[in-house]
Amino acid sequence: MIAREWKCRVPEFHSEGFTGYLYETGIKDSSATPGFQGAQIFRRSLAGKVELTLITYWDKLASIHAFAGDDISQARLYPEDEVYELEPELTVQHYEVIEHQLSPEL
């Protein structure tokens, strides 16, 4: 399994709106791509901003290519990102997942 990590920052007042927009764009497009295995969004507050980290999970690099295009190290951005005053990281990180376990109590 491969984890793909992307980060961005938005002004605090755009946080909820952008999170919804992220579901309608990145999550929706990812989940429609064969080989997609799940996603997580992390959020943390900064001074007047919110940082969001999107982790998507994939079965193999070829599936990420189908989603991201030829250069999988480049972030996939969307036309209305600027509406939310998005400060995106323009590159993404990929990791081999060597442990993937959640507590059965969750």
Rank of each mutant, 00 (worst) to 15 (best):
G26A: 15
P11A: 11
M1Q: 15
F13H: 03
I72L: 05
T25Y: 05
L52V: 05
L86E: 06
E82S: 13
H65T: 10
K28F: 14
M1Y: 13
G26Y: 04
H14W: 00
K60F: 04
T33C: 02
A39S: 13
Y84R: 11
E87A: 15
R4H: 02
L86K: 07
M1W: 14
V50C: 00
G20H: 11
Y57Q: 00
A47Q: 12
T33M: 02
R76K: 15
D59S: 09
I64M: 05
A47L: 07
K28W: 08
G17F: 10
I64N: 03
W58Q: 06
R44P: 00
L54Y: 09
S31C: 12
T33Q: 01
F36R: 01
L106Y: 09
L86F: 08
L106T: 14
Q101G: 07
V10T: 12
T91H: 09
E51K: 08
E87Y: 13
Y78T: 00
W6G: 02
T19M: 07
H65M: 08
L52A: 07
P104S: 11
Q74A: 15
D70P: 05
F67N: 00
E82W: 06
H100Q: 03
K28S: 13
A32M: 04
V50T: 04
V83H: 15
E89N: 11
A68W: 06
P104I: 06
Y23W: 08
R76M: 08
